[in-house]
Write a protein that binds this DNA or RNA. Structure first.
Lengths: 215, 215
DNA sequence: ATTGTAGGCCAACATCTGTTGACATGTCCA
DNA sequence: TGGACATGTCAACAGATGTTGGCCTACAAT
């Protein structure tokens, strides 16, 4: 039995295991990967630090276990693309508002910037859960591009509102927020690809790049 | 002279000082606050770790010095709101693409999630530089709300493309990116406030929240 | 030449971190 | 009763990190 972790078979020590996991999630979510210490997690779970090691091997594997989660994304394959945006935005805002229980997003956002495991998992979740979510019924060639745009807005929202807590973004109530963001997502999902910029826009852009003043 | 740092008066040791600052910026930008060590910075600058302390007091103050920067935002007060979005988006994309010299954004983004000084500075920059940038010529009552929305999209873009490096977002060439993002920003800046959602949208939202299936 | 001082280096400190191994306890089965 | 094994505690190690103080060297002013 030497070298065998308790991860392997079902046990009645699950309560302890869950206590560790929950403590880990909270710590990782609000302090990031580096500032979270095994000792602090153990203290939160009222056990000895060495127990954490026995249950999860090492910090990295503990994080992997704590960051394993599902988006719980709704099945939108039946929803026409025009409505999809509204449902998507409202779904995630609602999910994130009730952040007490599920801090998965915070964990990933806060850790992905310094921990490579977290970053990799973020890309994985994006590839496996976001792209398919957005893809159904959309030209597959365009799906990746559109998903990226959707992600940029949705993650930006999550970042400003729930992690950085920029006052201006926190102040908006969730309904108004959805009303602002949903059309953006709808456009990223449905607007014909490669919209041609107007001549005026091109000119403005070029002028700007060449240092000409406005007007 | 005891207790006096070299910060106070002009010196001919500026080269060393600058070397430290540059090394610090690079480390902070790509490894975040916690993973960046004084020793590593010192090694990059080819000096002794204790020199860093002498020049900047402590890690926190060094970070404060390294994270002091300006957005170099263009003056858009003369630009009509409709054009402002395009110029703004293109300005920042252009700034960020040439990231070799100026990694200011990466420093802030990567450190703001774990370091309170960085987070505070982020809010400050937002309040002092972003809001005014967007405000001119817009109803001041609406400026904060609109700025927040702009920030959510622009920071989300920066996050996905330059920090998380989500392949889907990295793949887009900058021109196409600007063409996608600019209309979003334009809407956030100019669309009449509190757009009323269509009856259908409200119904879809309620249905969804109540767990009804789509269609 | 002496001296004051700024710029720089070296060695060490105290602390914190992940991690390990030895030892105690408790529980279930033979 | 006794032993196997899971569950948990204690103490410690080894390495890294921020930080400090002492010492050396160059050099300009006296």
């Amino acid at each position: 039995m030497v070298g065998m972790t308790n991860t392997d078979r079902p046990r009645r020590c699950e309560p302890t295991r869950q206590a560790i996991l929950q403590a880990a999630r909270e710590r990782f979510a609000c302090e990031g990967y580096d500032r979270t210490t095994i000792r602090a997690i153990a203290a939160d779970a009222n056990i000895d630090p060495s127990m954490v090691m026995r249950y999860f091997g090492n910090k990295e594997q503990l994080f992997a276990a704590a960051a394993k989660f599902d988006l719980h994304a709704p099945d939108l394959s039946e929803t026409p693309p025009e409505e999809r945006a509204d449902r998507l935005v409202r779904h995630f805002i609602r999910l994130w508002e009730g952040d007490l229980a599920d801090s998965s997003l915070q964990i990933l956002l806060r850790c992905a910037l310094t921990n490579e495991t977290a970053a990799e998992r973020m890309r994985l979740i994006f590839a496996e859960q976001v792209i398919p979510l957005v893809t159904t019924g959309i030209d597959p060639d365009e799906a990746v591009e559109r998903s990226g745009l959707v992600a940029s807005q949705m993650l930006g929202l999550a970042l400003c509102r729930y992690v950085l807590r920029l006052p201006a973004v926190v102040a908006l109530d969730s309904e108004r927020l959805a009303t602002w963001i949903a059309p953006t997502i709808r456009r990223y999902l449905t607007e014909p690809r490669a919209p041609i910029p107007s001549a005026r826009e091109i000119q403005a852009g070029n002028d700007f790049l060449n240092g000409k003043p406005a007007n």
